[in-house]
Design a protein around this nucleic acid. Structure first.
Length: 608
DNA sequence: CGGCCGTACTG
DNA sequence: CAGTAC
DNA sequence: GCCG
């Protein structure tokens, strides 16, 4: 069934979009938001794959455009401007199924490239629309569209801009949908979600090929459609065992394939041995989720998304440069490599001082800004020579530009030289699990300056007590094999309860990091409901287990009010043998049909 | 000037 | 409810 | 902190 095929990108998108429709699950939203980041990561990385989400494409071109227009000094821009791309063309944008923001962008793209708009669609020869021709006729209230009018997807516009040419509109022609939607045929089987393996042919994917496929059916092209039909899909998965299995399996294997491919490509250091040892489908396992702060640093620069030969990005000076493109993890030696190639160490060192201060002060967003700026500067292949030069980089604003100027001129920054006396102590305190900025300040205010002071004078909560008790241990990262061993204990124990349950170690372990801050295991179950009840049993059995010692519970997340469906566990554990250092262990339960999103989420973007 | 992920737990 | 962690 |  399903002659329909979708490119990996589409699938991921689809998968992620499915989750929000998913029931009650409290984590759904969280999953989504984070997954979204990861998605963009995955998508953009695969340099060869053209961007499919038209919205994103539009954004990117909008960016590019914005930056091109003010300065048309280069010859290219000049010529561009002369014979504007869409000069003399009149189009009509049908806003149904298009978000306001996106519509605005499309209009801007269109008009700033010489096109004119006629929203009455009376005179327009081109109709930009995300809705089917039949629906379009409804909207326009006509029996028949006038002769010679083309109905095309709006992303034709951005595609044209990307290739700086008027592409044949028929490649983006809107065809009447096969009214089955992506949901389910009457026999209850899935029609559209056949992921199939046409991966091979897309290996060399020319934009055109993919594009044609994309436009050819409702799933790939009409994302809005997708969203609306998602609930039906998931619902059906619950009832149709067969469907749920096939679709999930294919989805999972696709994801894992992508991830594996990525690892191959990037020579991520997943130590060889283990990967095969764990038999779960995905296992490259991982551990933590060190915070969103280390999030992806905007890898979506135009260069990656558009084809290299695109003249659009070439030779045009862009006021705000994003970053160099590609994944950090693609950097052969990861973090070290970046540090070694840091051409702006003098600057980033100073900014790091300021970062530390903001961290200690609990200035969350400022920390975020510094991190972004530092990372961008580190990866900026060129030595920055002035604040104003740095200012052009996305993420670096006036304040930092000033600092950079000062650093360049004087070699130092006065701002970075005054460090509050309290800083070190506040940072120390906040290393205690359960102690944030507020508690840290209060302890400080009570006269505490050391952890012993806290133990003696303050009245820590349960979690904070544990945090104090295991402070030194929890500060340390563990080698990934230890994380793997701990995770494996959890997995085995979980299987001993229900052999069909599926566990995966996520986080930095899964990302292949050599050192992991904690162990993060997600548990799911193909029956779509056992995951809700398995956790208490799992914890109980782990507590009896001698292969992994659960030392303390930070929290046995029992799903909000009443319900006994625990969704997560956070605790402190240690392996019986070995150094006996205590480690943080998190276990999450995830509905089977959200695994795709969960994978994206918990594998995360914590790259550094 | 407001937003910067959003949610669910503890106390 | 604020604070914290993820 | 930065961005819009």
């Amino acid at each position: 069934m399903g002659k329909r095929r979708s490119s990996p990108d589409t699938l991921i998108d689809a998968h992620v979009r499915f989750s929000p429709g998913q029931p009650k699950t409290k984590h759904a939203k969280k999953d989504l938001s984070n997954a979204k980041n990861a998605v963009s990561l995955l998508r953009l990385d695969s340099g060869s794959t053209p961007p499919l989400a038209s919205e994103q494409t539009d954004y990117q071109h909008a960016e590019a455009l914005k930056t091109t227009s003010p300065k048309r000094t280069s010859h290219e821009s000049l010529t561009n401007t002369r014979n504007k791309l869409f000069g003399g063309l009149c189009a009509s944008l049908i806003s149904e199924n298009i978000s306001r923001v996106r519509a605005k962008i499309i209009r801007r793209l269109w008009t700033s490239n010489g096109g004119t708009l006629d929203d009455t669609a009376q005179t327009a020869k081109l109709i930009l629309s995300e809705v089917s021709p039949s629906r379009l006729r409804q909207i326009l209230d006509v029996q028949q569209l006038p002769e010679g009018v083309q109905v095309i997807y709006p992303d034709w516009v951005s595609r044209c801009i990307a290739s700086n040419a008027l592409l044949d509109p028929t490649i983006c022609q809107v065809s009447d949908p096969v009214e089955v939607d992506c949901a389910v045929a009457s026999d209850g089987t899935l029609t559209d979600i056949e992921i199939g393996d046409h991966g091979s042919e897309t290996a060399s994917d020319s934009t055109e090929v993919l594009e044609l496929e994309r436009v050819s059916g409702p799933l790939g092209s009409d994302t809005t459609h997708l969203v609306t039909s998602a609930p039906a899909f998931t619902e059906n998965m619950d009832t149709s065992r067969k469907a749920e299995t096939t679709s999930e399996v294919s989805a999972d294997s696709l994801l894992s394939r992508i991830i594996h491919e990525e690892q191959d490509r990037t020579r991520l250091s997943v130590d060889g041995a283990n990967a095969d040892r764990f038999e779960s489908d995905f296992d490259v396992e991982s551990d933590e989720f060190d915070g969103i702060d280390d999030e992806v640093i905007e890898i979506d620069d135009d260069a990656t998304a558009t084809k290299p030969e695109d003249s659009l990005t070439k030779g045009v000076d862009q006021p705000k440069i994003r970053s160099q493109g590609r994944f950090l993890c693609m950097q052969e030696n990861g973090r070290k490599d970046i540090d070694m190639n840091n051409k702006n160490a003098q600057i980033t060192d100073v900014l790091e001082v300021l970062l530390r201060r903001s961290e200690a002060e609990g200035e969350h967003f400022r920390v975020l800004s510094y991190r972004r700026a530092i990372q961008t500067l580190k990866r900026h292949g060129k030595t920055i020579e002035s604040g104003s030069e740095a200012r052009k980089i996305f993420g670096i604003g006036g304040k930092m530009a000033d600092i950079i100027d000062e650093v360049i001129e004087t070699g130092r920054s006065r701002k970075a030289e005054t460090v509050p006396e309290s800083q070190a102590v506040l940072a120390l305190f906040q290393g205690v699990h359960g102690c944030g900025i507020k508690v840290a300040r209060s302890w400080y205010a009570q006269g505490c300056r050391t952890l012993d002071d806290v133990r003696a004078k303050a009245r820590p909560t349960h979690n904070q007590l544990l945090g104090l008790q295991f402070y030194d241990d929890l500060q340390q990262k563990m080698p990934r094999n230890e994380a793997g061993a701990i995770g494996e204990c959890v997995i085995q124990t979980c299987r001993s309860i229900d052999s069909k349950s599926q566990c995966t170690i996520m986080g930095s372990y899964r990302r292949g990091r050599p050192m992991c801050g904690d162990v993060d295991v997600i548990v799911t179950h193909p029956d779509g409901r056992s995951h809700q009840t398995i956790l208490p049993a799992l914890i109980a059995r782990l507590k009896e287990s001698s292969s992994l010692l659960l030392i303390a519970d930070l929290h046995l997340h029992s799903s909000s009010s009443g319900y006994d469906s625990a969704t997560s566990y956070m605790g402190i554990c240690r392996l019986p043998e070995g150094a006996g250092i205590h480690r943080r262990l998190d276990i999450w339960t995830v509905p089977w049909d959200e695994m795709g999103a969960a994978f994206l989420h918990w594998t995360g973007n914590d790259i550094l």
